[in-house]
Every structure is written in structure tokens, then in C-alpha cells.
Amino acid sequence: MVDFYDQKKIVLVTFGVILLISAIFIPAAVFYPAKVISITPNAEVVGTSGLSLILGGGGIVLLAIALFIPAMMEQPLKAWLLSGIVAIIGFGAIAFSLGDYYYITRDGFTYNPPLAFESSTYTWDEFERVEEKVGSASGTNSIESVTYHFRDGEQVEFSSGRIFEMHGSVTNRVEAAGGEFNRIQEQ
């Protein structure tokens, strides 16, 4: 019986190590493409926040820890209970990671923020204005952040990500729908 128990520990630790190593690349190599595939085919560009990748990697690390716990603890009931709690938190982090996205279509902009499961879709005429903050470093101007202001009072600010690739298209569509574009030069 002791040999079987030791083999079970070896299997748990082995899968835990595999998950730890996978935590480095799975969020970018699997989770992001899964979002792109599962989001409407009408999406022109799909983006996600950096927090999404961190949450996904953290969730996978927690799943690895959930496998290590029963292999390291001697009290099976406490080990599996603690392992289950850690695994639930890990799956929650992965779910939040998968639920964090934004994309544009011909008709509007859809945004599902980090740590939320409900998305908001705005048509182009619901945009009040787009603010682009431009900074200067070593004589070169670059976009530091983009803020979208909506007529219902909501606003969304991005400081990195694929939003900068789609920003020109968003700005053109907002202006065509009657919204404003403001460029703010930061010092």
C-alpha cells in the first residue's frame, strides 16, 4: 500500500510541475486564441488586457499548487479539502481571464472588463468622444493611453494592448457617427 501512495504523490507532483511550466505560455498561446475563435466572426480586431494573461497564468499556478498540496500533506482529508479550495480559486482566475476581452465590429465596440463576466456593447453613435493622450520621450511622440467616453456617462481607459492597433479605426467611426476626437499632449 505504501508503494501505491508514493506513486500517487509522484503523479500529482509530475502533473503539478507540468502545469507550473505551462503557466508561462498557456495564457497567451491557448487562452487568447480561444477568445478570438469564440467571439463573433464579425469581430475585426480582438484584444485583451495584460491582467487577463496574469490571471490566466496565476490560475494555472494555483491548479499546480492544488496538485502539490495532497502530495505534501500527510492528513488526506485536510489536504484534499485545501486542495479543492485552491483549485476553485484557480478555476475562478482562469474564468476571469477568459472573460476579459474587447473587440470592434462594423456596428460597434464590445468591452468585457477584467474581473467581470458581463460585457457592454456600444454602437458608434453612443460614443461621446475619444481622448488620446500622447507623450513625448526622446523627441518621439507616442500614445500613452486612450479613453472612450460614452453618452451614458461611462468611460473606458486603455494604456496598453491591441487597442492601439484598432484605435484609428475606432476614432474614424466615432467621428463619422458625430463623436469628438481630442488629442492631449502630455508633458
Rank of each mutant, 00 (worst) to 15 (best):
R173W: 02
V46F: 05
F164G: 10
V86W: 04
E186Q: 12
L12K: 13
L53D: 10
G139E: 00
L82S: 14
V2W: 01
T121D: 11
L20R: 11
G108A: 03
E186F: 05
Y103S: 01
G57L: 07
I65V: 15
L20C: 10
Y122S: 10
A64C: 08
W80C: 04
W124C: 08
G90M: 03
V36G: 00
R151T: 10
F68L: 14
F150R: 07
A34S: 12
T171W: 05
V134D: 00
L98Y: 06
V2C: 00
D125R: 10
G178I: 11
Y102L: 02
D107A: 07
F68R: 07
G50W: 05
R151A: 13
S38Q: 11
T40S: 13
T105K: 01
S145W: 03
T121V: 11
K35E: 01
E118M: 12
T121Q: 13
M73C: 04
D152M: 09
S120E: 14
I10F: 15
V146I: 08
G56N: 05
Y102Q: 04
S97D: 03
I54K: 12
V61R: 07
I39M: 09
T147P: 05
V156M: 11
M72V: 08
S138C: 00
E126T: 11
G92W: 06
I60F: 05
I54H: 06
D100A: 00
Y122C: 08
V11H: 13
L12P: 11
G99D: 07
